[in-house]
């Protein structure tokens, strides 16, 4: 028995070693591959919302056209991705909403701020559009408590259900509820997909829902009237950050680009592209809408690139 095992292991090892030796030799398939230019291989973090996909895909396609090898890796937002940038496995975040939460990594020299990407984000709490039509005064946060009972679910502890954004998104729901003395309970949804589902189902079945969402995004195309169904909360005075701690509403945010130190220092054309990348909410929405409509992200990005050669040329520096 011992003998038989030994012989077999020997045979297996022999073949594996043979494979390694063979693998070491160059082959015709390998040689047929293009020689890449000196741009290098870089990784873009992919976050889950479709606007992000649109921006990242356009940057990726432009970079590929300029000889870069680009990998796209799906990751959760914020801490997870900053850590990945520090570890060297991610080089670019093309759209980050979290005003300065990356500071610790920037201070340490692992992550570099690469400026605004041109998109302006606005987070808010939205009701299903049929409710805004039926109860016009619901859009004033002062009247929310009047309707709280309608929003009750088995999970909301006797209060109205307030569907909060995913873990990686900027969320201040609990603070808003407290500051406005609302009879609501923040319910963690876990993912954007769940939020989309909550709003879509509520509008289709005419059931009540109050959920976190944001623009730019294509959900507003799919659910007509949603954009107008944003609850108006008393505005914060954001001129004094300390005062804004009584947080009552989300501010408009210039969305940011971040890159790894490694990419910044490389002098690669890709770092120039990322630095210069800038477009409007309308640009992002047009690509995102094509992707939503079933187009492959790469094809949708290419369509936009072909239609906007001047903008793209400006990014190349």
């Amino acid at each position: 028995m011992k003998f038989s095992l030994g012989r077999r292991s020997a045979a297996v090892s022999l073949v594996v070693v043979g494979a390694l030796v063979l693998a070491g030799c160059s082959s015709s398939v390998n040689e047929s591959a293009d020689e890449a230019s000196d741009c290098g291989t870089w990784a873009i973090a992919m976050h889950a919302w479709n606007g992000y996909t649109a921006s990242a895909q356009v940057v990726a396609e432009v970079a590929k056209a300029n000889g870069c090898t680009i990998t796209q890796t799906t990751l959760e937002e914020a801490g997870v991705t900053y850590d990945a940038m520090e570890a060297g496995s991610i080089d670019v975040i093309i759209e980050d909403w979290g005003g300065g939460r990356w500071k610790e990594w920037v201070d340490r020299g692992a992550v570099v701020e690469a400026g605004d990407n041109g998109n302006v984000g606005l987070i808010g709490m939205y009701v299903a559009p049929w409710m805004a039509a039926k109860y016009p005064d619901i859009l004033d946060s002062a009247n929310l408590n009047k309707y709280a009972d309608m929003f009750k679910t088995a999970d909301s502890g006797g209060k109205g259900a307030w569907y909060e954004g995913p873990p990686g998104y900027t969320t201040i729901g609990e603070k808003m509820i407290a500051a406005n003395k609302l009879n609501f309970k923040a319910i963690a949804t876990g993912s954007e997909a769940a939020l989309v589902d909550v709003l879509t189902k509520a509008e289709a079945n005419k059931t009540p829902a109050l959920a976190y969402f944001y623009t730019p995004g294509t959900l507003f195309i799919k659910i007509p009237g949603l954009e107008q169904s944003r609850i108006k909360f008393p505005a914060n005075d954001w001129s004094d950050a300390a005062k804004a701690s009584g947080l009552t509403d989300y501010p408009e945010t210039q969305l940011q680009k971040l890159m790894s130190k490694k990419l910044m220092d490389s002098g690669s054309i890709f770092s120039t592209i990322v630095m210069n990348f800038k477009w409007t909410n309308a640009d992002q929405n047009s690509v995102a809408a094509d992707i939503e409509g079933g187009m492959e992200p790469a094809a949708a990005a290419q369509k936009w690139i072909d239609a906007n050669p001047d903008t793209v040329a400006a990014w190349l520096g």
């Binding site: 914020a78 801490g79 997870v80 900053y82 939460r101 610790e104 873990p167 990686g168 963690a188 876990g190």
Partner: peptide, 11 residues
């Protein structure tokens, strides 16, 4: 949820 939140929100 707190474990997952901790991974995303540095604070």
């Amino acid at each position: 949820y707190l474990v997952i939140l901790g991974g995303s929100k540095p604070e």
